[in-house]
Design a protein around this nucleic acid. Structure first.
Lengths: 183, 183
DNA sequence: ATCAAATGAATCAATATAGATTCATTTGAT
DNA sequence: ATCAAATGAATCTATATTGATTCATTTGAT
C-alpha cells in the first residue's frame, strides 16, 4: 500500500457539488456542501484555485492507480481489474474528472499534458492486450480506452443517483467490458 | 419517415458550445458559435430559454427515435440497432442531454418527468430482452440501460475530439454492447 | 473550565454578467 | 440596383458574483 495523504473531504464534496451543478456560484457550492462561504474561501480563495487543486489531486490519484495496476507488465485481466478497483476506490475524483474534462479545457495550468499521457497509457494497455491476442482487434485501442472510461463513468453516475448498487460495479464492468472486448 | 422540422442549427451549435464550456457567459457562447451576442439574444432572450428549448427539442427527438425503434415489439437486435442509429443521427441533442443532464436538475419546467419516462422505457426494453432470453440476467436492466447510454455518449464525445471515426460507431456499439450484454 | 482554532454570518468594493435596446452595416432575394 | 430582413457592434442599467475582511460564536482539545 502506497503511503499518501487523503484528499480533503471538503474538497471532494465540492467536486461533487460542481458535478451536480457546474454553473453554481461559490455561495451555492458552499451551501451544497453544508459549509459557509467563508470556510470554502479559507480552503481555496478562488474558484480557479479549487479546480486546480481538484485536477492536481486527480492526477496524483490516477498516477497511483495506474502504477498499482502495472498496466504494461501484469496479466491483462489482473491489470484491468486493478485499474477498475483503483478507480472505484476514489470515485469522487474520477467522477469529477470524467464529468468536467473537456478537451478544449487543455490550455490550463500545469496538469494539462498529463491527461494526454493517461490517454496514451490506456491506449497502450489495450494495444498490448490486442497484441497478446486477448482483446479483439476489430475495435481500435483508442475506442476500447474511451469505452472503458465511459462505462465506468456511467456506472458511477448511476450509483450516485441510486440506480445501481456499489457492490455490483466491479462485477458488471468485468462482465460487460471484458466479454464485449475479448477476442 | 416521420415529418419533423429540423432543429435550428444555431441552437445546436450553442448546445455544443455549452457542452464544451458549461460555465461560459452568453457572450462567450455567442462568440464560440461565431455569432454576435445580439443574434443569440434574438434566438433566445435568456439562458433559461436556451436550455428549455434544447431540452424540449431533445424530448421530441427522443420520442421520435424511440417510436421508430419499436422497442416493445420489434426483434431485440433490430430495435437496438434502430435506437443507436436514431441517436447517431441526432448527435448534438444526445450529446447535450447526456452531458448536461443531472438528476438534481429535475425540478425544472415541464420536460422534467419525460426523462424519468425515457429511463423507464429503456429499462423495460432491456427487461423484455432478458425475459426473451436474449440479454444476460446477471446484470440488472437498469445497469444495461445506463451502460448503453454511457457507451454511446462516450463514443460520441470521442468522435467529437477526433479519437474515433463516425463510421465505426454503430459497429462498435453492436460489437461491444451486444456481445457484452448477450446471454 | 479555559483557550486557541475553526467556523459562520454579515458586509463591502470591484467586477462580471444578464437582459435589453439602438443604430449602422451587411446580406440576400428580386 | 433596390429594399427588406438579418446581423453586428456598442451601449446601458440592474443584478449577481467574486474576492476579501471583520467580528462574534462555536468547537474541541486539554
Amino acid at each position: 500500500m502506497i503511503k499518501s495523504e487523503a484528499t480533503d473531504p471538503l474538497l471532494l464534496a465540492v467536486a461533487m457539488a460542481m458535478v451536480d451543478n457546474p454553473r453554481a456560484s461559490l455561495l451555492e457550492l458552499a451551501r451544497a456542501v453544508g459549509v459557509s462561504k467563508a470556510t470554502l474561501y479559507r480552503m481555496c480563495p478562488t474558484r480557479d484555485n479549487i479546480i486546480e487543486r481538484l485536477f492536481s489531486e486527480s492526477v496524483r490519484q490516477f498516477d497511483r492507480v495506474i502504477a498499482a495496476a502495472e498496466l504494461d507488465t501484469a496479466p491483462v485481466t489482473h491489470a484491468f481489474r486493478a485499474l477498475i478497483e483503483g478507480h472505484l476506490n476514489h470515485k469522487e475524483l474520477f467522477v469529477f474528472v470524467s464529468n468536467t474534462w473537456e478537451p478544449q479545457l487543455l490550455e490550463t495550468s500545469d496538469t494539462e499534458h498529463r491527461w494526454a499521457e493517461f490517454e496514451a497509457i490506456f491506449d497502450q494497455f489495450f494495444l498490448r492486450g490486442q497484441q497478446e491476442g486477448f482483446f479483439r482487434i476489430d475495435i481500435s485501442a483508442a475506442a476500447l480506452s474511451e469505452l472503458m472510461i465511459g462505462m465506468l463513468s456511467a456506472l458511477m453516475n448511476a450509483e450516485r443517483s441510486g440506480r445501481i448498487a456499489r457492490k455490483d460495479m466491479l462485477d458488471t464492468m468485468e462482465k460487460m467490458f471484458l466479454t464485449g472486448a475479448q477476442r
